[in-house]
Design a protein around this nucleic acid. Structure first.
Lengths: 212, 212
DNA sequence: TAGATTGTTAATCGATTAACAATC
DNA sequence: TAGATTGTTAATCGATTAACAATC
């Protein structure tokens, strides 16, 4: 679809680009103006050729032979490439510990994500957290529709996840970031991404060299 | 290393196994006793042959032609295969909103992860959350060493992340799950896994079909 | 110019898909 | 036995690595 001039970008590259961004921002903060693919590769544990291929794809300007890539321009290019400048609205469903932590999380704004509001079944949770309103669950459809929100962050307890998910889908949510450690049954056209903190941690442990 | 009888298991398979586990537990909860690769594939959006290859690797018993795999046994086998039954201790550094949410998170126990304690520089955070102690930061080395903890969960604000990370490494932590949205500089032998909530959400948004 | 570093083309590697015989 | 579903072997596909000419 589109005009056919799109560049094919591999999934693997796409998953690495946010890591470059994080690294480059760190270097920029240290006052580094140029980076070479060799240095980036060493610091990040990638191969230099891989880094060049990835960056060539996202950079608006080719790297300078003998010099490398300009850090500040590269940051802007990668952000643009990833679409972090086009804003996306999201809602949080479940205003318990994790939901509240997410409401106060300052990292989203940098990625073009705007958390609109949170929702909870419990009247005691209604109010505001981190400057964001927490509404009773009944208002979910109204607010999702009014703002045309497509993305929802699900942070309810395990047992409430499936039914909350169904409410979200009914309200018009089509992409769910699920923190509840359960499998969600969703209709076609709805994407679920599982953000299982325990799995992340377990996979990290798996990488720890097990000595004897 | 080892006795040479180890089976090569692809990274791709390893990353899918926790997803199978989540799905299988959901089915078990519904009372399903057997699943076929075709059904799993349809529900999870994989290919049936891929599912068979993955499950063959983790299952202790071959699937029965004409019937499929026994759900309960498969769950036990996959858990065993992933090593979720060998306990790993972990500490949380940073007892703010996210740190406290993780302390009360009930999902870790199922994955063989035991959160020992949390630490915070602020005296006002010291105490207990979710039945877990929160100690002042000074006690990190002592408690990490005494328990032989290798895994740390970093949930301090962005600006404090690098120095907290260094304290963790000094104390003996060799694997860090980093929730701060910054690149961490660590010595060789230390693994960092970036758990950037914003990146997860952004990548989810990227999968949302952009209409016109 | 010389040195460093780039981008590209070809070769390798790993993972997925296709085809099919084996078996409950 | 017949049908469904399995596991395996070969073919395809995608991504990474190696080799090298181009260029600041």
């Amino acid at each position: 679809m589109g005009n056919g001039s799109e560049i094919a970008v591999s999934k693997a590259t796409l998953s690495r680009l946010p890591a470059y961004l994080r690294y480059l921002k760190g270097e920029a903060g240290k006052g580094v103006e140029y980076v070479s693919s060799a240095v980036v590769a060493r610091d990040m544990g990638y191969s230099a050729v891989g880094v060049r291929k990835d960056l060539a794809l996202a950079s608006s300007v080719p790297g300078k032979p003998g010099v490398g890539f300009e850090v500040r321009r590269l940051i802007a290019d990668v952000e643009k490439f990833l679409g972090y400048h086009s804003w996306t609205d999201a809602v949080v469903v479940g205003a318990g510990g994790l939901g509240r932590a997410i409401l106060s999380y300052d990292g989203f704004e940098n990625y073009g994500i705007h958390v609109v509001a949170a929702f909870d079944v419990s009247p005691s949770k209604v109010g505001a957290v981190g400057g964001k309103p927490v509404y009773p669950m009944e208002r979910l459809p109204e607010i999702v529709r009014r703002n045309g929100v497509r993305v929802g962050i699900l942070t309810v307890p395990r047992g409430a996840a499936q039914s909350a998910c169904e409410e979200m889908v009914r309200a018009g949510i089509t992409a769910i970031l699920n923190f509840a450690p359960v499998y969600l049954n969703v209709p076609d056209g709805v994407t679920v991404k599982y953000e299982d903190l325990a799995v992340s941690l377990a996979s990290l442990c798996g990488e720890t060299p097990v000595s004897e």
